[in-house]
């Protein structure tokens, strides 16, 4: 079957098996390998990308379901020479160790800032109508779909908080 995806602003016409996940489309067909396959079951978050502006696990959705959708991957946030704000903040704060989960962490973190900016509450927000801000508790809750086996969590939270401050 055929599916058209727009990834980081570039259009890709794919011919593929029905079973192709969005993750495998991005990595194997389009060749953008920054997005990582960790558990392939939606538990680890390493495959997180943005679909039409929202973060999702690309392993848990079919490429066929995204015909015409706008996808952003880690490569779309910046380059080694010109990193995006969240990428630069992870570098500055040592927000990683082995790095395998990092692309997913950064994709998730950049979406978290937008979710907070839109006033969307979380499980730990004391009120549903106003958000407590960029507390460690809020960041830990909102990032709970991204695992880091090296347990770099304190630096990951610091990197997100730094990026949030820089954005203000």
């Amino acid at each position: 079957m055929r599916t058209t995806l727009t990834v980081n602003g570039e259009r890709h016409d794919l011919s593929h098996d029905e079973r192709l996940s969005l993750l495998d489309a991005i990595r194997d067909q389009i060749g953008l390998t920054g997005t990582k396959k960790g558990c392939d079951h939606g538990q680890c978050g390493a495959c997180t990308v943005h679909v039409n502006g929202r973060r999702v696990n690309s392993c848990l959705t079919l490429a066929a379901m995204h015909d015409g959708d706008e996808i952003t991957t880690i490569e779309g946030l910046g380059t080694p020479d010109a990193p995006g704000a969240m990428q630069a903040s992870f570098q500055a704060c040592d927000g990683f160790q082995c790095g395998f989960c990092t692309a997913g962490q950064i994709m998730s973190a950049s979406a978290v800032l937008e979710e907070i900016g839109r006033g969307e509450p979380s499980h730990v927000s004391s009120s549903l109508s106003s958000i407590d801000g960029m507390t460690d508790g809020e960041l830990a809750e909102r990032m709970s779909g991204n695992l880091c086996r090296c347990s770099a969590y304190p630096m990951i939270r610091a990197a997100i908080a730094r990026a949030a401050e820089a954005a203000e």
């Binding site: 939606g42 978050g45 997180t48 929202r54 973060r55 999702v56 696990n57 848990l60 959705t61 998730s108 979406a111 978290v112 979710e115 509450p121 979380s122 499980h123 909102r142 990032m143 709970s144 779909g145 991204n146």
Partner: peptide, 11 residues
């Protein structure tokens, strides 16, 4: 909000 993760709730 008590269920799943942010990524999964988006889908």
């Amino acid at each position: 909000l008590a269920g799943a993760s942010g990524q999964i709730r988006n889908k």
